[in-house]
Amino acid sequence: MLVKFVKVLLLFAFLFNTTMVSATDYDEDVLEIFSKLLPRFVIMSDQKLKVKDQINICVVHEDIEKGTASSLIEKTIHNYPQGIKNYNIKLIQTDFTNLSMCKNSELFFLFNSSEKNIIETLLFAKKQKILTVSYDASLLENGIEVSLFLGRKILPYINVNALKRNGIIVDPILLRISKIYMQTDK
């Protein structure tokens, strides 16, 4: 009986966690747009000053999104086979527990995760002064700096306050074409 209860409990936990983590369907078109955006975000911000001979983009995801992350990376490599502006593009896949391998990155791309993971990642990024981009625009509320606005038209979605807090500057042209997310300070 106890064993049964534990299995049910585990199943429930797994389902719950999975549900929490896998709330988003990842659109390939949106990923395509992100794949074009990510290297440009680095070049069109003051992150380019950190770039020596290659752009390092860290794709942070849960295990369950490994495939999606890989898809994103493939798309990026496909769009920039020669790199961008004489810079190679290095894409690193990692989960939320191994952020240290991305400490020299210029950009973090975050797939969905728990709030705790998101916040910790953001703190890490802030410390390392890394630009954070998320698939899910709702994470802007947590302090993510850039996402995509998916409405009648697709636009980069920029959290200006977060940028200001983290001391990151982006190109005015980028700001011009983007939708601005005004976060109220928590």
Binding site: I33, K36, R40, K153, I154, I173, R176, I177
Partner: peptide, 14 residues
């Protein structure tokens, strides 16, 4: 510059 970025990023509607 805006046109350029929009075209590159495939932001056709925008």
């Amino acid at each position: 510059p805006i046109l350029s970025l929009n075209i590159l990023l495939g932001l056709d509607d925008a």
